[in-house]
Amino acid sequence: MKKVIDIFPLAIFVVLLIVLFSFLSEKDDQLETALVDSDFPDFSLSALSNDNKTLTKGDISKLPALINVWATWCIACRVEHPFLMQLKNESVLTIYGLNYKDNRTKALSLLERDGDPYEFSIYDFEGRLAIDLGVYGAPETFFVDKNGVIRERHVGVVDETVWEKKFAKYLNE
């Protein structure tokens, strides 16, 4: 009996260690995706390319699509830019941009220089639509299915691996 008691603290310690370590790797640093399986939110914002043009949810009409939150101040966005260009060039699916808290001129000249993977970009200087999407920062990417429902969200750079793992499965539904 005494031996059992002696081992007890160590046993609890080991169990705690295993449990806590498993939590560390489990969530893969991803934030909670509150909006998955809900409709894409309504919005009314100007187009990045034209201050006078108002865009609404109805303009996001080529579905399924990716909604990609980006900005010129966001370095990681430049990392994923070539992959977004590849998706566009291979006509995999439509990508809509949500230009987030950015300078319009800088954003447009970046698209001119590096290529524009977006059907169009929504200009969200105040972060209005971003809040309705639960956006924390850039880059973030949402998959919207053919019914206009958000199916997946990815925080961080989208590359080949992320695309295959998280998004590709929704394309052929």
Binding site: E32, T33, A34, L133, G134
Partner: peptide, 8 residues
């Protein structure tokens, strides 16, 4: 806000 950002 919870609808958008979760319980977090």
């Amino acid at each position: 806000l919870v609808q958008r950002y979760g319980n977090f």
